[in-house]
């Protein structure tokens, strides 16, 4: 059973079509990136998976549950990290990491133990007693990721989690997080507009074009896949700097995604 299932999902905001027949799956232990330009419908798809938005048509299932109708069933199953860290300013780094555990009713001693372990795993040793304003942007994002992981979720959703950081910090963080997620066997869905984030982290990349639908699928970790050429292909699919790609337009003309690259992308 897929951990995340999105099947023939369509959604409108008033008269505007935001998601058009979007379908994809994320299997257990897989890291999948949804890549798209601003306005491609990534966030709409993300909100539907989070259970914050009910699709007009189609099916969304997360760990077998309908996230909108049965939101409470996902308690403790999903960890989420956002573009901005969203840390609570009155809690220390440790307090923020413990936050989800408090909601799940984990006893104080166990919370502390787990938070300390996550501080260590996310390379935040010694920062546990610092408040968010005393931490750097990269450290705050590490705390945010640790908060998401501390509840030991089976699914981790990352909404542009590395996008606001500088290039070096972002690279280090996604390398660390990618390794951690693989080691722990987490299912991850990364929403991003940054191709390098997706290429470096994901097992599979789904390129979205507006209104949200998949126009390209790629596996950067497949044998022989070249990150550079893959990046160029995705850029072409995303349409360069000034609008929809020729390739994207071609695929849309037929109404179905045709620009699909599986395995090796030349």
């Amino acid at each position: 059973m897929s951990e995340i299932l999105v099947e023939n999902v369509t959604h409108h905001f008033d008269a505007v079509l935001a998601v058009s027949d979007l379908s994809f799956r994320v299997e257990r232990g897989e890291i999948v990136a949804l890549v798209g330009r601003t306005g491609a419908g990534k966030s709409t798809a993300f909100n539907m998976i989070m259970g914050a938005l009910k699709p007009d048509q189609g099916v969304v299932r997360v760990a077998g549950h309908d996230p909108f109708a049965n939101s409470k069933a996902l308690r403790g199953l999903i960890g989420v990290s956002f573009q901005n860290d969203r840390l609570l300013p009155w809690l220390t780094a440790r307090g923020n990491i413990e936050f989800g555990l408090r909601i799940l009713g984990v006893p104080a001693a166990e919370r502390r133990k787990r938070a300390d372990s996550w501080l260590e795993q996310t390379k935040l040793d010694g920062a546990g007693d610092l408040y968010p304003h005393q931490l750097s942007g990269g450290m705050r994002q590490r705390v945010s990721l640790a908060r998401a992981l501390a509840i030991d979720p089976s699914i981790v959703l990352l909404d542009e989690s590395f996008s606001q950081l500088d290039h070096v910090t972002s690279k280090t963080l996604r390398e660390d997080f990618g390794a951690l997620a693989r080691r722990l066997g987490k299912t991850c869905l990364l929403i991003t507009h940054r191709i390098d984030d997706a290429v470096e982290m994901a097992d599979r990349i789904l390129v979205l074009a507006p209104p949200a639908h998949v126009v390209m699928e790629a596996r950067p970790r497949a044998a022989g896949a070249s990150p550079k050429s893959l990046q160029e292909s995705i850029e072409r699919a995303l349409g360069g700097e000034d609008g929809a790609a020729e390739g994207t337009e071609r695929t849309l003309a037929g109404g179905r995604p045709a620009l699909v690259a599986r395995g090796r992308v030349a």
Binding site: G79, F82, R86, L88, I103, A148
Partner: peptide, 23 residues
């Protein structure tokens, strides 16, 4: 943003009050 972030843990209304609103 805070409400959304806390909402991902699926808290009860009392937990939202006690852990988010009160502080």
């Amino acid at each position: 943003d805070w409400v959304e972030a806390i909402g991902t843990f699926r808290p009860s209304l009392f937990q939202i009050f006690y852990l988010l609103i009160l502080p």
